[in-house]
Amino acid sequence: MSQPVIRANAVGLTFQTADGPVHALKDVDLTINKGDFVSFIGPSGCGKTTFLRAIAALETPTSGQLTVNGMDPDAARRARAYGYVFQAPGLYPWRTIAGNISLPLEIMGFSRADRAERVARVLDLVDLAGFGGKFPWQLSGGMQQRASIARALAFDADILLMDEPFGALDEIVRDRLNQALLELWAKTGKTIGFVTHSIPEAVYLSTRIVVMSPRPGRITRVIDSPLPASRPLDIRDTPEFIALAHEVREGLREGHSYD
């Protein structure tokens, strides 16, 4: 289980803006192993999304080494190594839910029969069986986001990168989706990178929590979760959970330098 999938070594990323350089990431060292559920948490501007985008080769680090599956991120992207879920569902309004899910499959050249089979399977996985023929705008926000997760799962990449996927949803829907995500992770054994700004969400979901802080964006603490693999929702009321949440909060606080 401890086979490294994503490896970052002194990764730095600097944006050149009109107001001078912005250090979005500085000296980031991190190894993510196969089957890990790693959350990135921190205030806005701490580089958590930038780091996820760098793993996905949507941004290019300006220094250090970053490898995904032993390749450089862009090669991994071209090898379709990961599925990416954004904060908004980003479903095409002119395609049905099934059509949306099969879109990446069409692009990657899967056969028609294979596509149908996979769409049915992932729809089932996210509990949307029977909604394949609907258009996105006929579904609720939570259902749309589940469909976008199904879309990221459809082509069976080993890595799932999620950028605040539930950030725009209300608390009740979010709880349900968190639970569903954990079940899905247990079933598929994927490696998940998950960006969030909610402490309970990070603690509830992750095997490891990466706490980051801004200016420059960097990792301040990496916390391994002692929580068991099986996590019912009410685990959030246990002392272990509360202690872990406290530790994360401490980590976030120490990242704030008062200069």
Partner: peptide, 25 residues
């Protein structure tokens, strides 16, 4: 931009993103 990033994460070639995303949009 998100839609275009999504296409990039699938390593979609230019033709596919034109035909499947940008023309319908």
């Amino acid at each position: 931009p998100m839609q275009r990033d999504l296409m990039a994460t699938w390593a979609a070639p230019y033709g596919a993103s034109l035909w499947k995303l940008r023309l319908p949009a």
